[in-house]
Design a binder for these strands. Structure first.
Lengths: 230, 230
DNA sequence: GGATGTGAAGTAGTTCACAGCC
DNA sequence: GGCTGTGAACTACTTCACATCC
């Protein structure tokens, strides 16, 4: 747990590390104590070389001839991604999506800690979701590291403005709307319909292949005849 | 709408086109009839040159000295992304997330058409969501172009197997689980917690900046003192 | 033997700078 | 004048191939 400096990693690597993390944990829960770059690569949909290059960036944590010790690997990835710190997260907009995120056991993990829920709807304000009382988004907003926006698109910019004014410097925006924020504020977009469009594009164009790019677009070209038939 | 061949576009371009599309529509709804590459770039968080390079790939649709006619632009992007076709979509797993997606007015757009909802929970099967009766995922599954997976992670692989066996060749997977599918099946992952981790990484490392990459990670470094203060 | 880590080569995507057209 | 479209330069990432070490 040596407190290390930020460590600047290539952007695609940052996007893949959480994937390796998930795979390694899965592997561990199945009783393995080590994993090698081809296994990681097959699962993640990238080449073994890419995996090694990514991991080499975190320091020399592999064992030649034997692969990576899962425990060591997980520690180093967590540290590289800054997960030895905790992040205060608020969710704004408690509709179906906000509720799904707040209650999910896999969303707020690795240092992310839910500290507040906000909504504008009076019929929701005051109710309890995921053990938090939903508060009025027009009232005082607690300081947090990250705000998750799950509000209707029309409201997104106004809410973002409020959050920024309340001192929040990172937004995860689920509203299908481009946001304008001042310098120094990070916005990360997740847009379901865009993901779907990327997929359908590949359907007519690339045709099923789409190996490559793990990120949010992994196509895993693993053999596997599926199920019992053919 | 000249029926054109697939048109192979660079992957990052494919991810940005839907963003331009959204921006252009926004612009249009505010009364503009044309837009130029810097305006698109500012909004999308990329350089004007990148926008021009992306759009030049669709054919020569700009007007020198004047920018892009919004109507023309939207037509060409829609065609390039294959949106002049329709896609039959099923949603599997009707929890909070599945419900949110089914009811969203911005998810199933541009050719995507909801044709079925499936779940394994008996208390949900038979109920009506988004004007569709939820059917048993263990029963017959209608043929569709794309399946959207919103099931718990433990169930994801088994459900994916069923869907593939039912002839579905494209999956949009919201379950935080890596899936193994046979060659020829496309999987596109959307993982909320990974998005959050990428954002928090930038928080400690890059520090607020993160210009670049529109994709799902746009940081828009637009000036804008926010709200009325300052 | 076997799998890592890494120079060197290759590929993909972005940015520069400017010619071309409205 | 202004903004597009694009060859050329550059930068970033991936892949190859192999020396290195357990």
């Amino acid at each position: 747990m040596s407190r290390r400096r930020p460590l600047r990693l290539p952007e695609p690597t940052v996007a893949r590390l959480p994937v390796y993390q998930r795979i390694a944990e899965n592997w561990r829960s199945r009783g393995h104590s080590s994993i090698d770059s081809s296994q990681l690569g097959d699962q993640a949909g990238v080449t073994a070389t890419t995996v090694r290059r990514d991991l080499a960036g975190l320091g020399s944590l592999g064992v030649r001839g034997a692969g990576y010790d899962i425990e060591t690997l997980l520690n180093h990835i967590a540290e590289a991604l800054g997960q030895d710190r905790t992040y205060r997260v608020v969710i704004v907009g408690v509709g179906n999506l906000g509720r799904a995120l707040a209650n999910s056991t896999s969303f707020l993990v690795r240092g992310a800690e839910l500290v507040g829920l906000y909504d504008a709807d009076l019929s929701v304000i005051g109710s309890t979701v995921a053990r938090h009382v939903v508060r009025d988004v027009h009232g005082e907003i607690d300081l947090a590291d990250v705000a998750v926006l799950c509000v209707p698109p029309e409201a997104a910019q106004a809410v973002a403005d409020r959050l920024v004014r309340a001192g929040i410097r990172a937004l995860l925006n689920f509203a299908p709307r481009v946001l304008t924020v001042p310098q120094g504020v990070a916005v990360h977009y997740v847009d379901f319909s865009i993901e779907l469009q990327i997929l359908t594009y590949h359907l007519v164009s690339g045709m099923g292949l789409l190996g490559g790019g793990v990120l949010h677009s992994v196509g895993i070209p693993n053999e596997r005849p599926v199920g019992g038939d053919a």
